[in-house]
Design a protein around this nucleic acid. Structure first.
Ligand SMILES: [Zn+2]
Ligand SMILES: [Zn+2]
Length: 340
DNA sequence: AACATCGGACTTTCAATTTT
DNA sequence: AAATTGAAAGTCCGATGTTA
């Protein structure tokens, strides 16, 4: 089996289409735990990637979940620890109804949702922790999840603020004088600030990568293995990159950047659970066979050939099922991020 | 109410490093 | 040369304090 690592770089999600070589549904399930980099103070409406469950990089706004070109229909699932990944406050327009895209997780206190769901969309699961299926619905008429109503994101700033606005930490505009300076009668002093020269710095060697934003791990139960609650082991995922089974050549060259076989041995040398407290890992069961049958290691095949949701094979109750095919971009998995 | 400050949450840039 | 990736530097929201 060949593995490919790739990462989406500064590309709006909407531009991604489902890639024919990526099986549906995806063979990867992400387990997210202890998202300590999601401070309660983080605005829920923010487009900050740490707000997007499953994002592998909490510091970048433009890079994508797990570095893979998922379309809405094939994105992986994230098991979110409710007590920590759930926003404690709701946002305007957020649904309080049990969403149909959420699943109960086989892991206690987790729920299973598609990766890239905005954190705010979990408001429905806010404390006290409750079963998605029985969650009350105080305001069922408003459902930002299924309706895809956008969540307010921070306004885009100007390229370069005037010195006055920069100093005052206030919003500037492109005009010179800018609106604020005009309003305050500071027309004369309104000049564009100068960007400082960046100080020279030396990069450290890579091994101690910060495990950021979404503490993730992949787990890959063999189909038909029955309940597979994995045991914390070493980390099998590299920050900023992820791996997808590549059993056929990529049709679209722009998506691929083939790499050798960065599998376990490789990655284990970089990460251990001990090194990163709080980084719970559930990766004890990577697929070993190379059969093309293994496109769906997670979901397995139902007797009728359809794919099963992981929750199903774990015996968890499925609250809803993901849509089939790749036409779901505008549907229930729609990202709240407008700039996608 | 209008304005000044400012902590800090996002965002954008860019250059060091790694890949191709 | 191009892609990654760490993190410096930038924008500005929103809370708080001051002034009128
Ligand atoms: Zn200005
Ligand atoms: Zn100005």
């Amino acid at each position: 089996m060949r593995w490919t690592t790739r990462r989406i770089h500064e590309r709006p999600l909407d531009l991604w289409h489902h890639h024919p070589s990526i099986p549906l549904p995806t063979p990867i399930v992400i387990l997210m735990d202890s998202p300590q980099s999601l401070p309660p103070s983080t605005p829920l409406g923010s487009a900050h990637s740490s707000n997007y469950l499953g994002s592998s990089d909490g510091a970048r706004a433009h890079e994508d979940v797990m570095g893979l070109p998922w379309c809405h229909a094939c994105r992986p699932y994230v098991h979110v620890l409710l007590s920590q990944g759930t926003p404690s406050t709701s946002i305007a327009g957020a649904s309080t109804a049990a969403p149909t895209w959420a699943f109960s997780s086989p892991f206690p206190d987790y729920i299973c949702v598609p990766a890239l769901v905005h954190r705010s969309q979990l408001a429905v699961f806010a404390t006290p922790v409750m079963n998605p299926t029985t969650a009350a619905s105080p305001n069922p008429s408003i459902d930002s999840v299924s309706s895809g109503s956008p969540i307010q994101r921070r306004a885009k700033g100007v390229k370069i603020a005037c010195t006055n606005c920069r100093t005052a930490n206030k919003k500037c505009d492109e005009g010179r004088p800018c609106g604020r300076c005009m309003k305050l009668g500071m027309d004369d002093s309104c000049v564009s600030a100068q960007r400082k020269q960046r100080i020279r710095r030396v990069k450290q060697t890579t091994t101690a990568i910060t495990v950021s934003a979404t503490q993730v791990a992949v787990e890959t139960p063999i189909p038909g293995d029955g309940p597979s609650v994995s045991i914390p082991a070493s980390v099998h995922i590299k920050a900023g990159a992820s791996y997808v089974s590549e059993t056929q050549e990529m049709a679209d060259a722009s998506y691929s950047s083939p790499v050798g076989s960065p599998l376990l041995a490789d990655l284990d040398s970089h990460f251990t659970a001990a090194q990163y407290p709080g980084y719970s890992v559930y990766a004890n069961n990577w697929p070993t066979q190379t059969s093309t049958e293994h496109h769906y290691p997670h979901w397995g095949h139902g007797s009728d050939g359809t794919h099963q949701h992981p929750a199903a094979q774990f015996g968890g109750s499925v609250v809803g099922m993901p849509p089939d095919g790749c036409g779901g971009a505008g549907g229930m998995f729609q990202s709240p991020r407008q700039q996608f």
